[in-house]
């Protein structure tokens, strides 16, 4: 106790400086966590947080029993699976290919251009998607030229996932590759020298030096991705979906948004959010433990 007091006296100013930061995290991160307890209450604004009656797991049960539960779970998981299969490896492959570009000037141009879409706002990107996929949009024109029947692709549920994932890759592949390029730059160049002397060509170097060299970062990002399996970037879905495409496009987080902020069923929506967060947390811990066991790479 004496030590703590001494530490406090010595670093009084530091503790004073961090106070607003601690307050911020307390109010805007920890208070909402506590507020999530309304998932177990029948929260009404007029009665307030404390006076609203406890109802236990009632909201969770009615969510699990609802007609939408399986559809939401299925849509969320399928969309994330698509992302895992297509969006996740794309920047890795792209980084490997960028690394193979010979001219450093051309390399810089490629990087500058492909990082750009990351900074374009989601609204503008989705605006372009809507425009290009409209009945007379340019992508529709191209697809018609390739033999598709003229239609509005965003109005049909069977195309939603493809549109979502492809546009995600378009916007994120360049920016996503930076982290892998940084890891590639961190690989000891002597390894390449040595393998060249052993007669390895570029192709073998990619598979035996570069790829193993960036495996730790791949694993870490993969674990984080698994820990978000019940999350989808719902802002983009809200901008692109419509009641016609709910069958494939509606995911847990968009449902939470509609229930909570459009129908104002606060407790019910919060319960769904809590369910989502808990499953995510379990998946994260499981993925981390699994990875620790088989590859010695882990978050903690």
């Amino acid at each position: 106790m004496n030590g703590l007091l001494k530490d406090y006296r010595k670093h009084k100013y530091l503790y004073f400086m961090i106070l607003p930061v601690v307050l911020y995290y307390f109010i805007f991160h920890y208070v909402p966590m506590y507020g999530a307890l309304i998932a177990f209450k029948d929260f009404r604004i007029a009665e307030g947080f404390l006076a609203s009656p406890w109802v236990g797991f009632q909201h969770f049960i009615s969510f699990f029993d609802s007609y939408y539960f399986w559809r939401l779970l299925k849509n969320t998981l399928i969309l994330n699976l698509y992302m895992l299969v297509f969006s996740f490896p794309a920047p890795i492959i792209f980084a490997l290919l960028i690394n193979e570009i010979v001219g450093s000037r051309f390399k810089r141009v490629v990087q500058t251009v492909t990082y750009l879409p990351h900074f374009i706002s989601l609204i503008v990107v989705c605006g372009m998607i809507t425009q290009f996929l409209a009945r007379d949009g340019i992508i529709t024109d191209l697809l018609v030229w390739l033999g598709m029947e003229r239609q509005v692709l965003l109005a049909h549920p069977q195309y939603f996932r493809a549109i979502y994932v492809i546009s995600d890759i378009w916007q994120g592949v360049g920016w996503g590759s930076i982290i892998y390029l940084a890891a590639i730059m961190g690989i000891n160049p002597e390894l390449y020298e040595a393998s060249r002397m052993d007669g390895a060509n570029r192709w073998r170097q990619i598979f035996h030096i570069t790829l193993p060299g960036i495996t730790p970062i791949i694993v870490i990002l993969f674990i984080l991705k698994i820990g978000n399996m019940l999350d989808v970037g719902f802002e983009k879905i809200i901008l692109l979906y419509n009641p016609n495409t709910y069958v494939t496009a509606d995911v847990i987080s968009t449902f939470v948004y509609r229930k909570g902020l459009q129908s104002f069923e606060f407790s019910y929506a919060t319960a769904i959010g809590v369910f989502q967060a808990v499953i995510n947390f379990i998946l994260l811990i499981a993925a981390n433990r699994f990875s620790k066991k088989i590859s010695e790479n882990s978050l903690w």
Binding site: H29, G35, I38
Partner: peptide, 14 residues
């Protein structure tokens, strides 16, 4: 807080 949050609705109410 990077791994766990109260979620959309509690934040909105706050």
């Amino acid at each position: 807080t990077m791994f766990f949050s109260g979620g959309l609705i509690p934040m909105y109410l706050l």
